[in-house]
């Protein structure tokens, strides 16, 4: 365990990702605490450019973009994290049961998974978002989570199937472990790093999915997220009017968050898979 941290913190890529992610996180969590303003309050004029009073100007309704950005990043992280937790849990559960059980159970579970993969998730997301009447941030996370697990399930199934051939699995079986014990105690601990990496991927995927949906106007109600900010600037033609401060900051925040997560993910991959390690 200690060695893994030593190796991780030797990787420049990991440090960059980690520091960047901490910065985004503190901006989104500590920011609103230090600066408890209502992001919906109209405080200035229409599309006021950045100034001393409004660091990032105001939007089409005269609301402070900087405040929106803090609250929006927080909502986006929340949705991404919820989606990540849900997608990873479903994926790991289905994948590990299919991989361990094999046979008909595997066929059925993987059949379902493949059906989910072939249906374009954006369509499901749009339909679900329309069908659900109250779209809170949590519901958004849930919707994204339940549509994005299939790839994790497939990967976990493959990993489980290969771990299953280890001899300690046979030892546990002839010691009389039940299937649940086998999966939880004998297989999942070996995939911990892998599952954590899958979670990070799902996390950043969730943030991007939220942005896509919200930009299309299917975002959460009564709250601001990075996607919602983009939706507004699209709706009120911020691009045409040259109000760059209304859409550039959320885009930067979005890219920084996903970039930090991805770079942590890829450096972890290198540490956990020694074959990828560069000497």
């Amino acid at each position: 365990m200690k060695d893994i941290f030593i190796l991780l913190f030797r990787s420049k890529r990991f440090i960059v990702g980690f520091v960047l992610f901490l910065a985004v996180l503190s901006f989104a969590i500590i920011g609103p605490m230090l600066n408890p303003k209502n992001p919906f309050q109209m405080v200035g004029g229409l599309f006021t450019p950045p100034s001393d009073k409004f660091i990032l100007g105001t939007d089409n309704l005269g609301r402070d973009v900087f405040t929106q950005l803090m609250y929006g990043t927080r909502t986006s992280l929340l949705i991404g994290c919820t989606a990540g937790v849900i997608a990873t849990s479903i994926g790991v559960t289905i994948g590990s049961i299919a991989g361990y059980k094999g046979g008909i159970v595997e066929e059925i579970l993987m059949g379902i998974t493949n059906v989910f993969i072939t249906i374009p998730s954006i369509v499901v997301l749009i339909l679900l978002s329309i069908a659900i009447k109250t779209r809170s941030a949590a519901v958004m996370g849930l919707v994204i989570g339940v549509t994005s697990w299939p790839w994790t399930a497939r990967a976990v199934r493959a990993q489980t199937a290969s771990l299953k051939t280890r001899e300690h699995i046979d030892i546990a079986r002839i010691t009389g472990f039940s299937s649940i014990e086998m999966i939880v105690l004998e297989i999942l601990p070996y995939m911990f790093s892998y599952i954590f990496m899958a979670f990070i991927l799902q996390f950043s995927g969730g943030i991007l999915n939220e942005a896509t949906l919200s930009m299309l106007g299917l975002g959460p109600y009564q709250t601001v997220s990075l996607g919602v900010m983009l939706h507004w600037s699209l709706l009120w033609e911020a691009v045409r009017t040259g109000a760059w401060w209304a859409f550039i900051p959320p885009v930067i925040c979005l890219s920084m968050t996903t970039f930090s997560l991805m770079s942590m993910n890829s450096s972890m991959d290198e540490v956990f898979n020694p074959r990828l390690r560069r000497s």
Binding site: E167, H168, I174, T175, G176
Partner: peptide, 25 residues
């Protein structure tokens, strides 16, 4: 399950690879 447990009480094994025979956790 009951019959299998009874059988494994009577019939046990040791395997080739003394490393992968253990759950490292």
């Amino acid at each position: 399950r009951k019959e299998l447990l009874n059988y494994w009480r009577e019939v046990q094994a040791i395997f080739q690879d003394p490393f992968s025979s253990f759950n490292i956790f």
